[in-house]
Structure formats: structure tokens, C-alpha cells
Simulated scan of single mutants.
Amino acid sequence: MLRLLSALVKIGLASLITGAILSALNLSAAELLAEIGLTPDRVFAALQEGAAWAIPNIVLGSLVIVPIWFVTYLLRPPRN
């Protein structure tokens, strides 16, 4: 858990520094997206489509994985 938190803090700090540098260079997210042929609306729509695809698949997979994990957890020998 500590590794995950540490990684998230590092990613956040790197993103903050990069954003500050790009802001100092008068670049915006909309300009960078326009350079590669995307609009903020198109990116948002793609994220929505991805979530609409992923969420049902995650739920479906968890209907199989969670009971298997639970039974395995119950049948493990106790730790000292």
C-alpha cells in the first residue's frame, strides 16, 4: 500500500512540475490536443466510451473472481 501511495505522489508531483513548465511556455491542453488532431470533447467522449465498455466487463469478471478468491481465502491455513 505504501508503494502505491508513493507512486501516486511521484506521478502527481511530476505532473505538477510538467504542467507548470508547459504553462510557463504558454501551452494549454487544448493546444496540445489540437496539435495531434483531437479536441477536448472528443477525448471526453472516448473516455466515456471506454468507461461504458470497461465497467460492465469488470462487474462480470468480478462475479467469477470474487467468489473464487473468497473460497480460497477461507480454505487457506491460518498464519502465525
Rank of each mutant, 00 (worst) to 15 (best):
L4F: 14
L5K: 10
L5D: 12
S6G: 14
S6D: 12
A7F: 11
A7Y: 13
A7E: 13
L8I: 14
L8C: 14
L8Q: 15
V9I: 15
K10Y: 14
K10H: 07
I11F: 08
I11P: 13
G12L: 03
L13P: 04
L13I: 15
A14W: 04
S15M: 11
I17C: 06
G19M: 04
G19A: 05
G19P: 00
A20Y: 09
I21Q: 06
L22A: 10
S23Q: 10
N26G: 09
S28I: 04
A29V: 14
A30L: 05
A30K: 11
A30S: 15
A30H: 11
L32C: 01
L32F: 00
L33W: 09
L33M: 11
E35W: 10
E35K: 11
E35C: 07
I36K: 07
P40H: 01
D41E: 15
R42A: 15
V43C: 02
V43D: 01
V43F: 03
V43S: 04
F44A: 15
F44C: 06
F44H: 13
F44N: 15
A45F: 06
A45W: 11
A46G: 09
A46M: 15
L47M: 12
L47H: 09
Q48G: 13
E49G: 15
E49Y: 03
E49K: 07
G50S: 09
G50D: 05
A51R: 03
A51D: 06
A51K: 05
A52P: 04
A52N: 06
W53E: 07
W53P: 07
W53K: 07
A54I: 03
A54F: 09
P56A: 01
N57S: 08
I58Q: 04
I58Y: 06
V59Q: 10
L60A: 08
G61Y: 01
G61C: 01
G61P: 02
V64S: 02
V64R: 00
I65L: 12
I65F: 12
I65H: 02
P67T: 00
P67L: 01
P67A: 00
W69L: 14
W69Y: 10
W69S: 05
W69Q: 09
F70W: 11
F70A: 09
F70H: 06
T72K: 09
T72N: 08
Y73H: 11
Y73T: 10
L74G: 03
L74A: 03
L74W: 06
L75C: 05
L75F: 04
